[in-house]
Design a protein around this nucleic acid. Structure first.
Lengths: 116, 116
DNA sequence: TAATCAATTGAATACTTGCTCAAATGTATG
DNA sequence: CATACATTTGAGCAAGTATTCAATTGATTA
């Protein structure tokens, strides 16, 4: 490790360690990012970006079985990324709130900049 | 599927399908989110949130072996989340750019709101 | 109420991922 | 130049994950 004032160094590291969020918050953060860390789920978010869709339409849009999409939606619902409402036989899914849209848009802008 | 004007429906779905980014972009998006979708890597981002650190210090801060941290840093570097500079024996890592900080902060705010 | 369609669920499986350990590579310094 | 320290690398393993398939639940309608 870098040498220097030994006491300061240990103190600094402790300070940084203390600034790291508690493990429950770390888990929440990682879980949220994880939910969007999959191509299928990114597609679902993108498909819902401009309005709600029922499961079978979502499945058609993302090119997977209803079942596969339903499994993913369950995870996304559990993690507050999407919400649903039933209308008769159909269950319409939409993005949970504006944050999701904001985050999606910011990251999209970010990766497109990186390519430049 | 919901019945209605059949032609409009198919047309609408096609339109939504067309708005979904190309698969390369989907992959970039999912990969970026994936990088932050892990507790260890969230801790690393959080530790670097206020300045650079060398590998061994990072390891101490996040409570893992140098090797484990180095493996994660490789992935994070590859995905433009962190950057590094060598200074003698040491390699100092820092967040790649302001976007990473912004995204981290926005998501942190989001999950803390959800708990309310 | 029987038949039908939408959505969910659970088990199985192939695939991915994070960590550890041991060995290798860089870099400095005695 | 040999030793020590920082970091990286690769193989291996245990745990997690995404999809499929078959069966089930929920809701409409003929």
């Amino acid at each position: 490790m870098p040498v220097g004032n030994e006491e300061d160094l240990t103190a600094q590291i402790t300070k940084i360690k203390d600034r790291i969020p508690a493990s429950e918050e770390i888990t929440l953060l990682a879980d949220f990012f994880s939910v969007l860390g999959d191509g299928t789920r990114v597609k679902i978010v993108s498909a819902l970006r401009h309005g709600e869709l029922c499961v079978s339409h979502l499945a058609e849009v993302v090119g997977l079985s209803d079942s596969a999409v339903s499994h993913q939606l369950r995870l996304m619902r559990y993690n507050n990324v999407v919400k649903s409402r039933r209308e008769g036989k159909y269950i319409y899914y939409s993005l949970a709130d504006e944050h999701v849209i904001d985050i999606y848009d910011v990251v999209k802008a970010h990766i497109n900049e990186d390519n430049a």
